[in-house]
Design a protein around this nucleic acid. Structure first.
Lengths: 230, 230
DNA sequence: CACAAAAGAGAGCACTGCTCTTGCGCGGGC
DNA sequence: GCCCGCGCAAGAGCAGTGCTCTCTTTTGTG
């Protein structure tokens, strides 16, 4: 073995990466449904059947791209995360990073948060990568609730069991009310981003950046990340 | 002319409807990307090229299905709308109707609110049908703000121009703060529905109905539809 | 009744994902 | 250092797709 696991394995890794790169290029250019194994192979100067040695099916290639997309998004969000800023500002920054990433990578965003490619169900492999943004938001909320808990209204009785279950799963150190609001805010964040990205805001919202910043600010308040008067 | 516009036109309408019905069946069964013109034609006992006399392309068929889906969703939402109930309850009912329709028609929901079918951009034809749910929500908010306006916090200065523009466009009789919150709530509603439908809540939210009712209740409060203590 | 317009049939093109068989060449055990 | 075997690529081929073109049949109407 020359280097770790020999030269053959290295070549394999390189070819695999080249395939993913070219696939990502096509994905960004035309979207997931138009991603064609044959076109990728053609562009790489190989014959289509050779590509199946690296990805047993188109879905497997897509899965690899999905994981990469989750990671890329998670990285952007984490990079936007200045741990020294107050929680409210950090929340806004992370949300804006998510929006920015989505606008920069619309087809990749559609791949992971739009309708799943029909006939395709993401394997559990994607779970850890998918959780990164959520964990980041939870972390911010945790910091915000370090000190004495700000007064929060009571919760409806019928929600309490589910809220406590979610809190136990996601953040046992946070009050169930906060965890509930956090999960809702998480989903709603993607509603805002998706509507903008998929054209639902056309002819409705013009100054989308301002609108977005305001809306995610409200989400933060809903999750108990207090701030000055709106 | 035997009947209005002749029998030929009637036959055309019937065949068009039959094509859409079969297409909708395939859509519901397998999703948009697997919808095949040839399969539809086969099922209908016609040859594929004949189908192009009715829909010039696959995208045109999809557009027809999209409009129908918007209308079906709008109808469900309007049917759930008991005009005599107080606004807050009406809001909840409409939101639950949207969620229910989405769970009943996942692929159609994905078609209209998921990632747009790549390479496809919806023509303006779809706009009126798409607006139905939004108009319904605006109407509810209007009723809620009939009486003396409940106290609402001030709005950030940078949002004011956009808020006033949106209000002028969508509901000149409503305060800009409310219109802004309404638009945000509208987008966030679909974030909640989409996350549940597309599996993002798997292993996170269990009692989704309760969670949803609570979350849209918060949205309503954000839009100034006051109600009892949460 | 005749004729033109509308609809259907069928072949064909270029493309897709995927499989199978064949042959080449390089890596690694001897 | 040699040579074998395995990893890999190549190519043909299958079944399917959207869409176009031409030709024939049907049918409503002047």
């Amino acid at each position: 073995m020359s280097t770790a696991q020999g030269a053959r394995a290295r070549a394999r890794i390189e070819v695999t990466a080249a395939i993913k790169d070219e696939a990502r290029r096509q994905l960004a250019a035309q979207g997931a449904a138009r991603l064609s194994l044959r076109a990728v192979a053609r562009e790489l100067g190989m014959v289509s059947s050779a590509l199946y040695r690296y990805f047993p099916s188109r879905d497997d290639l897509l899965t690899a791209l999905i994981i990469d997309a989750y990671d890329s998004l998670g990285e952007s969000a984490e990079a936007a995360h200045d741990a020294s800023a107050p929680p409210f500002e950090r929340w806004i920054s992370v949300c804006e990073a998510v929006r920015g990433w989505a606008l920069d990578h619309p087809h990749e965003y559609a791949l992971i948060y739009g309708s799943p490619v029909p006939g395709y169900t993401a394997p559990d492999t994607t779970v850890p990568a998918a959780a990164r943004v959520g964990l980041l938001l939870i972390g911010i909320a945790r910091d915000a609730h370090q000190g004495p808990a700000p007064g929060r209204p009571a919760m409806a009785d019928d929600l309490r069991p589910e809220a406590e279950r979610m809190a136990a799963d996601l953040a046992p150190d946070l009050p169930p009310e906060v965890v509930t609001a956090l999960v809702a805010a998480w989903a709603q964040l993607y509603g805002l981003v998706g509507f903008e990205l998929f054209g639902q805001f056309n002819r409705v919202v013009e100054d989308r950046e301002t609108f977005f910043r305001h809306a995610v600010g409200q989400l933060a308040r809903g999750a108990g990340l207090a701030s000055g008067p709106r």
